[in-house]
């Protein structure tokens, strides 16, 4: 009986267990406990939520290992952490800390403007952002075991997440309607490996779990993303930049499970106090848009 760690099934399977759940950004152990108590399926440990990274500017990097370990000690649910795009040493550091998932994230400042991390080299699984199907399949080809739509992090504006979910969903539906002999050109156009394109065309879905992220701030936003076919939701700045984080966190968890029931979403939306103020993505100068990072 030999035990094999870090197989594709073990990495992708971990993401399957998160389905129907909410993963919340937290910056300290206290927030992590609030998230766990609210029913989060995992937390993302980071030093600054995207809204603050945006406000404060500068280079955003991997979090301090001490801070990640404090969060790991505080909660029993999985703890994820972010590495910069292409920064495989940050990823190795995070793996050595025993984080449960690494987010190779456009929210941090990229370390490499050409290559992403070769994720097959790792035992720990990776989640990566995507704005369209080709990008999602390139990340999966590099070993990502989970995909999230990017949205525009730190804005509280759900429009980009919506756009990316529609784009990914639409491209999958279009692939499924193609003849077998048209998939070669489809692969060329998507700039993605033929084998993965064929698999998506046949199954009508990505080979890994698809979450959504970026700009989700309310229970109704979470339910909207679930109705667009997301398997679950990342909420970054939306919770701990709002008036009543514990209540808003629990409300988003409820709405994610019962997204089909408008009455539950309505009840979850009552009396939550102030949502994060937010920035309209349209008002953001293009160079400041995070979703454009990654290729």
């Amino acid at each position: 009986m030999s035990e094999v760690k870090g197989t594709g099934r073990v990495k992708r399977g971990m993401a399957e267990m998160l389905k129907g759940g909410v993963i919340m950004d937290v910056v300290n152990a206290e927030q992590a406990k609030i998230a766990e108590d609210a029913g989060a399926v995992a937390v993302m440990a980071l030093e600054r939520v995207p809204a603050d990274i945006r406000a404060q500017g500068g280079v955003a990097r991997m979090s301090d290992p001490d801070m990640i370990e404090k969060i790991q000690a505080a909660v029993s649910i999985p703890v994820m952490a972010k590495a910069r795009i292409g920064h495989f040493v940050e990823a190795k550091v995070l793996q050595s800390l025993g984080v449960d998932y690494i987010d190779e994230s456009e929210v941090l400042t990229p370390a490499d403007y050409e290559n992403h991390i070769d994720k097959w080299e790792f035992t720990v699984p990776f989640v990566c952002g995507a704005t369209n199907l080709g990008e999602a399949l390139r990340r999966i080809n590099e070993g990502a075991a989970m995909i999230r739509s990017k949205g525009e992090a730190g804005t509280g504006d759900v429009s980009n997440a919506m756009q990316h979910m529609r784009k990914i969903g639409g491209e999958i539906r279009r692939l499924s309607s193609k003849r077998e002999d048209e998939l070669y050109v489809a692969a060329k156009e998507l700039q993605a490996p033929y084998e993965l394109v064929k698999e998506v065309a046949h199954n009508g879905k990505l080979p890994v779990v698809l979450f959504t992220a970026g700009g989700i701030a309310t229970p109704a936003d979470a339910a909207l993303m679930m109705s667009m076919g997301a398997d679950g939701v990342f909420i970054g700045s939306g919770i701990f930049k709002s008036g009543n984080p514990a209540q808003r966190a629990a409300a988003c968890v409820k709405a994610t499970t019962f997204w089909q029931d408008a009455k539950v979403v309505a009840d979850a939306s009552r009396g939550l106090g102030e949502a994060m103020v937010g920035i309209n993505v349209a008002d953001l100068p293009v160079p400041h848009r995070l979703a454009d990072r990654g290729w």
Binding site: M1, S2, E3, V4, K5, G6, T7, R9, V10, G13, M14, P78, Q95, G98, V99, D100, Y101, T123, V124, P125
Partner: peptide, 11 residues
């Protein structure tokens, strides 16, 4: 253990 210790085996 944590996710890095997750594994598959034959039983």
């Amino acid at each position: 253990g944590r996710q890095v210790d997750s594994f598959e085996t034959d039983l």
